[in-house]
Design a protein around this nucleic acid. Structure first.
Lengths: 250, 250
DNA sequence: ACAAAAGTGTTACCCTTACACCCATGT
DNA sequence: ACATGGGTGTAAGGGTAACACTTTTGT
């Protein structure tokens, strides 16, 4: 017989008081890209129907960014992941419904603000990990999102907007695509993030002109049609280009 | 004889424990624009040589945005101000030097994260207010910045970058300029925020084409030369234009 | 044969940049 | 007269959008 969420929370409450800062939680919107769809890593807490963003608390002896990296690593087993803090959410009642019926001195029942990050990960390298308080943890496509607990839907929506706006300033292609990728894959990624179709020929020319791609002498075998060329990012040129953004309005 | 900062903090510590959330502070970078220079409202704590960003703590019974509005109002006496949360700072040692020599159970000596906002205010409408813990509170031009305490210089720098990046997405001109302003004033504001000279004729044409300005039948009297035309923003057109940004890269 | 991939051409249009010119007007 | 403001002209260059054509290649 497995231990319930409520029992588990009550058992660990005093430990939490000891090592974590009160009132501060960290939530991560972990993105990846796989076969033409943008995915988000979601968890489901034991006994709950709703899904949630993977999150955690900030330790008393840890920088904020370290905390975000740790939360991420606990869920994905990968480190050195691109993380960007995009917003902090702090409505006073943002979690009040979820912990109804729990004892008032429970650590998790306090009021929390959520410092939210998005992470850009490589789909193939991440192994979603279930922890003690959840019974599911998996990639879900952003057009098949389930109901999320608390204000997590709002947080996810803001993350998507921040991702879109960051397309010209952050290494989004570099971090979401595998080491080697094809031009149609890159275009698809842009189309999904921007939520619109792009003209193929113009996209091709623009990308080439940015000078951030290195064309490989290999092709992607195994498809049903002509094997597409593979590219990698020229990391130096990419980061240089991002310094000022790919396009500035002024 | 006036009460020292240390005495004041010690006296109010227990009160703070009661009504504020621990670990969370709110700092505001309050901008305004006056006669060709961008200014920031800074305060100096009693007995300190360094200046600081106006800040405060989040009340247990208050939304995060309400807290930011309250902090702002305490310093400027104005409400309905444009506030934008741009980043949360949380290095574990960010305040450790400042409170050396203070008792360990002092409220203010705890570890804090700083949820930071920038505010866009009208210079003429703001009356800087000194409170009990400070002995100065005034507008300082961004090219005459003094040394700031803790990581406040870094916060201010990030605020400036966020301001610059937001120029095409946020009502920056609308909020920083007086109700009526001239074309040269508007251009100067853009030049200061972007930190570069802009061509006058092209700037004029571009602004007119945006369709966000209403030309008034008045001029700014009293100058040494030809009286310039006055304009106001067409608020509806302005907010409509901001919906998608003045210029999108994709 | 078919379908996807790759690369290029074309055209019209718009925007940006940089200068330059004219006029108006307050001191 | 002079300095500032207001408004427009213009030519070069570059980016965008939409479409179309060609060639290559794997099944």
């Amino acid at each position: 017989m497995t231990i319930s969420l409520k029992e588990l929370l009550e058992k660990t409450s005093s430990y939490h008081y000891e090592i974590y800062l009160a009132s501060i939680s960290i939530d991560c919107v972990i993105f990846s890209f796989d076969t033409n769809s943008l995915k988000v890593l979601l968890v489901r807490l034991k006994g709950s129907k709703e899904w949630a963003l993977p999150g955690g608390y900030l330790k008393k002896e840890e920088d904020l960014n370290e905390g975000a990296e740790r939360v991420l690593k606990e869920r994905t087993s990968v480190s050195n992941v691109y993380l960007h803090q995009f917003e902090t959410f702090g409505e006073k009642n943002r979690s009040q419904h979820f912990f109804e019926g729990y004892p008032d001195d429970l650590w998790q029942k306090q009021r929390y603000i959520s410092i939210s990050y998005y992470a850009l990960t490589n789909y193939a390298k991440v192994i979603p990990k279930i922890d003690d308080i959840s019974d599911a943890c998996k990639w879900i496509s952003i057009d098949e999102l389930p109901a999320l607990m608390m204000d997590h839907s709002k947080i996810l929506e803001k993350a998507l907007k921040a991702l879109r706006r960051g397309l010209n300033y952050r290494p989004i292609g570099l971090k979401l695509l595998p080491e080697k990728f094809t031009m149609p894959e890159l275009q698809k990624l842009y189309e999904i993030i921007l939520d619109k179709k792009l003209n193929r020929g113009n996209f091709y020319r623009k990308m080439i002109k940015y000078g951030i791609l290195t064309k490989l002498k290999e092709t992607r075998k195994g498809g049903a049609h002509k094997a597409p060329n593979l590219y990698t990012f020229d990391k130096e040129a990419y980061t240089d280009a991002l310094e000022n953004g790919f396009k500035e309005a002024w």
